[in-house]
Simulated scan of single mutants.
Amino acid sequence: MAINYKQCPNCNSRNVVNIIYGLPTHEAMKDAEAGKFMLGGCCVEMDSPDYHCNSCGNEWTKNEAIDRAYEKINRVIATVGGYFGPSYHVEIDLEAEEVSWSKSEGEGIWQPPITKPITDAEAKTFMFNLQWADLLNWKKEYPNPGVMDGTHWQVELVREGRNIKKHGDNNYPEGWDMFCTTIKELTGREFS
């Protein structure tokens, strides 16, 4: 998982605790005083924060942490295919607002990439769809040890901080079809 809910989006501190709502027991009050969590009161509203930073006092929701994690993505590099069939490679550069797509018919010989600009609206829709596909919560590997040939895929996220790589062999995360559809919509070309 690449979403760190307990890292402050304001100061990047990890000195963060959960905020607990409801009428606290005596034991819960002691735990709150010990700094194990923070009491948020009896009423929970739609936008009540889930986390509190002890370093700067910032508070945020789980959804804000998710949004921030996806905002850190600068580029998406994805490849899918197999030795005997076509393979596809795409690079989406969100900072330069352009996408590059190329295809190989096999044996590692790639066609020259086709590059096109993307609009701000297209980039936002793409990022929304990545969240919908739950890309950051995909496991690192999706192996299929019983199959030697077939379809292999890899996705690399170039982000602020560290890059994230995810890959698989004939095995896919739940959001894979949504991810492929999103690539096709953005590039106007095949990707699967």
Score class of each variant (00 low, 15 high):
Lys165Cys: 14
Glu160Ala: 13
Asn129Leu: 06
Trp138Ser: 04
Pro86Asp: 14
Val90Gly: 01
Glu91Leu: 07
Asn74Ile: 08
Ala78Trp: 01
Asn170Gly: 09
Lys103Ser: 02
Arg68Ser: 12
Gly175Asp: 04
Met178Lys: 14
Val99Met: 00
Thr151Asn: 12
Leu157Cys: 10
Asn74Tyr: 09
His89Cys: 09
Ser102Gln: 15
Leu157Gly: 07
Ala133Ile: 06
Gly161Pro: 07
Glu174Met: 08
Phe126Leu: 00
Asn54Pro: 03
Asn170Arg: 08
Ile73Cys: 06
Lys165Tyr: 13
Glu105Ser: 11
Ala123Val: 03
Ile114Gln: 11
Ile164Leu: 14
Ser100Gln: 11
Val90Tyr: 00
Phe84Glu: 15
Met148Gly: 10
Asp169His: 15
Ala121Glu: 13
Arg162Glu: 15
Ala69Gln: 05
Glu98Pro: 00
Trp176Val: 06
Val158Arg: 15
Ala78Phe: 02
Glu107Phe: 14
Val76Arg: 01
Ser55Gln: 12
Val90Asp: 01
Ala121Leu: 08
Gly161Arg: 05
Leu135Ile: 13
Gly81Asn: 03
Gly81Glu: 02
Tyr83Ser: 15
Arg162Pro: 12
Asn144Pro: 09
Glu160Gly: 11
Thr181Lys: 14
Thr182Trp: 01
Arg68Glu: 12
Glu95Pro: 01
Pro112Ile: 01
Trp60Ile: 09
Leu157Thr: 06
Val147Pro: 08
Glu174His: 08
Asp120Ala: 13
Val155Ser: 06
Asp67Pro: 03
Thr182Asn: 09
Ser87Asn: 04
Met148His: 12
Arg159Asp: 05
Ala133Lys: 06
Tyr88Lys: 02
Glu71Gly: 07
Leu130Trp: 02
